[in-house]
Design a protein around this nucleic acid. Structure first.
Lengths: 219, 219
DNA sequence: ATTAATTTTTAGACAAGGCTAAAAATTTTA
DNA sequence: TAAAATTTTTAGCCTTGTCTAAAAATTAAT
């Protein structure tokens, strides 16, 4: 088994390496709120364990083995978030912090039974796909709201980052995943957007639009 | 907040101090599979935090503050065990190990919502009372089966220690908490007991009888 | 293409929480 | 009640995972 700390690094690497060919030590340090020197040490350790490809001064990536572990932690995190929202009724703005702790609990039976109890969910409360036991993970077809063209329509299917203040704002506006959205016009001055959500007109700031993920409806 | 390690000591002290006026360093060491020297160190630390009354060479007890923390951890442990058995269908012989991890997850809202979700249970799957949020805990009126007199009747309400092999044996014999029991006779030679459980006759070894808790039916 | 700035690594320190070995206190035994 | 045995504590060491400061490598700028 790996320590909580090692698991945090692997998960971090998974999130940061998406798209990129390598992740810099500094990026990891920033993401985990640690010093680059600490990160450097840990990367060496993870490389020794064959979980990370680490080239001095050149950045790191997960090995296949490391990626599978990372995906398993993400699976646990997202299943727990689903449980906390769906079964316990905890706000989607608060579950991340709790799931950060629960994801390190080590019991395969627990996770498989939890998955069954939840009905094998594909998507967590923030719209992120839940990796399967074997490490496969769905890729969703979604765009940032800010990248939509005027008159395009779609469904709100996720948030880019589940910052509590964003989620609380969406709650207050009664905006939920699954709601339909229709881009009416772009305001040039401040890059805010006029949209219709569930047929109700509303203006969303640039920052909001940069964090809402939309599945565009074609045809 | 306290560390996982500190929490383990407090919980251990709670379990060991029952009845006694003080708990020796060695007892704690044995219970936690550690060396007495390590325990000595930690007791000093917990005494500094005002969680433990510690007198050099004279043993330790929990302070009121320490006891409340211990009870809270036990509350979490037993609520989680209830969840694992009742909702996820995990065997009562396996939940202790998992709950040992879950009990250290820190979120008051999580525990209160879990308690609500479970219907505010009073008793965990092994028959132990679940402390309330304020630290109160029920005292149950139960005796060891081995202490019953011939012809006494009652209900099986708990196990003294949830050792997996005991629990698996009970499963195999289809003996469950809540079953009625009637002591038919005592076998002098090996101290085993002939009993009727749910009106079916069965012989239970001395060791089993020393671990089954019975609520005796009077009148 | 050097120099300057930045990033990364190395070296050494520290706290937590274990351990072993030795010293001190207590308890048991004769 | 004095010696022996046991328990407990102290002292010092180790590992994990963090940090700071300094050195080394890379990248950017003039």
């Amino acid at each position: 088994m790996n320590t909580k700390s090692e698991e945090d690094y692997l998960k971090c690497l998974y999130h940061l390496q998406e798209g990129k060919s390598a992740v810099s030590t500094n990026e990891i340090a920033k993401y985990l709120s640690m010093k680059a020197s600490s990160v450097s040490d840990m990367l060496k350790k993870l490389a020794d364990k064959n979980l990370v490809n680490y080239l001095r001064y050149k950045g790191s990536t997960l090995t296949k083995k490391g990626e599978l572990i990372a995906l398993n932690i993400i699976r646990k995190h997202r299943l727990w978030e689903t449980f906390l929202v769906e079964k316990l009724g905890i706000s989607w703005s608060k579950v991340h912090f709790i799931a950060e702790q629960l994801e390190h609990v080590n019991s395969e039976e627990l996770i498989e039974k939890l998955d069954y109890f939840l009905g094998h969910p594909d998507i967590d409360p923030h719209g992120d796909p839940i990796p399967k036991k074997n490490g496969t993970i769905a890729t969703l077809n979604q765009k940032l709201l800010s990248e939509l063209n005027v008159e395009e329509k779609g469904i709100i299917t996720g948030v880019k980052k589940g910052t509590p203040s964003l989620l609380n704002y969406l709650d207050k506006q009664n905006i939920k995943l699954g709601n339909s959205i229709h881009l009416i016009s772009k305001i040039e001055f401040d890059h805010s957007l006029e949209v219709k959500i569930n047929n109700k007109k509303i203006t969303l700031s640039e920052k909001i639009c940069n964090n809402l993920l939309i599945e565009v409806s074609y045809g």
